[in-house]
Computed example of a mutant assay.
Amino acid sequence: MASNNPHDWQPSATRQVLKQRAELMAKIRQFFAERDVMEVETPSLSAATVTDVHLESFSTELLASAHQSNDAQTLYLQTSPEFAMKRLLADGSGCIYQICKAFRNELAGRFHNPEFTMLEWYRVGFDHFQLMAELDQLMQTVLSCQAAQSLTYQQAFIDYVGVDPLTADIEQLKQQVNRHNLDADWILAESDFDTILQYLFAELVETNIGQKSPCFIYNFPASQSALARIDDQDERVSRRFELYFKGIELANGFHELTDADEQARRFTKDNAWRKQHGLAEKPIDDRLLAALQSGLPDCAGVALGLDRLVMLALQQTHIDNVISFSVNKA
């Protein structure tokens, strides 16, 4: 828990680690400069936020004046700069990247601080495979690691869970919970297909892949498409990928959805799920939808947890060790 102990004033990370971190940041900026990708900055506060059912944002109140709290406007700290960056893309920015603070209202842990640093970039004219290749180049540049491996979500599930996620029914998924001796009575009572999929993926796939070299998992189920396009060749899957290395989820990327109407439908569906499960509905970002309506260029984008990447580069075991002040010292 965060505290306000005046004796606990020193940084979470050592001076040496902070120096090494700064050198890594310079190397990353050079990587994008060599590829003519422009660095941008977008707001951390916004009038709207993500509807994603697995993310919770922080909110604050902007007062109209010091004495008129009834006129306060709710603003949200962004879970990623994605929506604002897409507005830049729609306005003709070309290829862009950003290194920024992002905020997610989740408990701090080994790999998560509620305020963290994100690297996000968008490549106009790229599909998800081209962006995966570029991310692989960045990983080799920063970590001096081997080239990444790639597996479809379907193949990874078959290899490590023992069932095809694109054809299995909910009972077949639950059978795998027992077959693998997973202590999860709550998941056996679960009725949401994707919740069970995600549990099995986290327990049996993530723990096995990407141990010696980074591993891409791509073509996620269409039900987990988020802001990615559905694949033209197989409507059961989306053009989405994630990157894992040494037990850490590092990045999440899409061949970006450009259809404003479809994006609006997904946001509305998220809010319906939230309402059904007793979660607060979130304001839909109408400015993003207007930008999509005006024309988002064909592009692919990816968000990468930069603190986690620094952890790997510097062989640190806890996120607190690579950031100046963790949440319990903030």
Rank of each mutant, 00 (worst) to 15 (best):
P6H: 08
H7V: 00
A13Y: 04
A13W: 05
V17N: 07
L18R: 06
L18F: 11
Q20N: 14
A22G: 06
F31R: 01
F32H: 02
V40W: 10
P43D: 12
P43I: 03
T51L: 05
L75V: 11
Q78W: 00
Q78E: 08
L88Q: 13
E106S: 05
F111K: 13
H112F: 04
N113T: 04
T117L: 08
V124L: 03
H128V: 00
L131I: 11
E134L: 04
E134C: 00
Q137L: 12
L138G: 05
T141F: 00
T141R: 11
A148E: 04
Q149A: 12
T152F: 02
T152G: 04
F157G: 05
P165L: 14
H180D: 07
L182M: 11
A184R: 13
S191M: 09
D192G: 06
D194S: 14
E203T: 11
K212W: 00
S213V: 09
I217L: 15
Y218G: 02
F220E: 02
A222D: 03
Q224D: 13
A226H: 02
Q233Y: 07
R236P: 12
R240L: 12
E242R: 05
E249T: 02
N252G: 01
E256C: 07
L257G: 01
T258Q: 15
D259F: 03
F267E: 01
D270W: 08
K275V: 13
H277E: 12
P283H: 11
I284Q: 10
D285H: 10
A291E: 03
D298W: 10
C299E: 03
L306Y: 09
L306C: 06
V310W: 00
A313H: 11
Q315P: 07
I319R: 10
F325E: 07
N328L: 09
A330C: 14
